[in-house]
Amino acid sequence: MIKLENIHKYYDSHHVLKGINIGVDKGEVVSILGPSGSGKSTLLRCINFLEQPTSGIVEIGGKRVNVESASKSDVFALRTSTGMVFQQYNLFKNLTVLQNVMIGLTSVKQLKKDEAKKRSLEILERVGLSDKLSHYPAQLSGGQQQRVGIARALALNPEVLLFDEPTSSLDPELVDEVLATIRAVADTGKTMFIVTHELNFAREISDRIIFMEDGVIIEEGTPEQLFTDPKMERTKQFLSKATRNN
């Protein structure tokens, strides 16, 4: 249902992704772990073409795109079938909470205003922000902003949600509310890719964990396999070091 085939990404001569292959079933939650600079963000951003991959194939919900010959409408299709949640939230600063969630429905999906509003209200209810509809992002806490970010990503009802370190900018006491929201979304059967440094969370929520280093997937498996019995020495080192730091 989501397939990445042999994805490569170069920044000039810098080879950042070196042939990534991933296949994910509907409803699967996949966490991507790995040291800083290993290419995790780049991988997520290649899926929705925020970065243009150099070569490879991206397939989402039956839409198969060879990245080298991707047309504008291919890119549009990939972007509307993915929802992205950013580390820095990136809420539209000039729009209210409700407008942030609605804008994709009215501008991109061209829904009628009432219809868009109705759906947005439902989604904001799910992330627990019905009482902040007319607040601007600057008036919200980081945790609230990120929950709006999740609501905005959910609004277009994408095939897959992409989370790039969704809690890394948050004060520690706000992390839990965002993790709880992500968990609630996962429980609805949404397919998700999560790049995170929250190892316990990844272990608990994921169906599968992918460990990346230096632009390649070193190892993948269920959380149990990876955390209790990693095959590769590098995975072992990373996990023990990261667990110590946690």
Binding site: L50, R79, G83, M84, F92, V108, R152, A153, A155
Partner: peptide
């Protein structure tokens, strides 16, 4: 980036 990501 956020605008592009939702397909605007």
């Amino acid at each position: 980036e956020a605008a592009k990501a939702i397909g605007m």
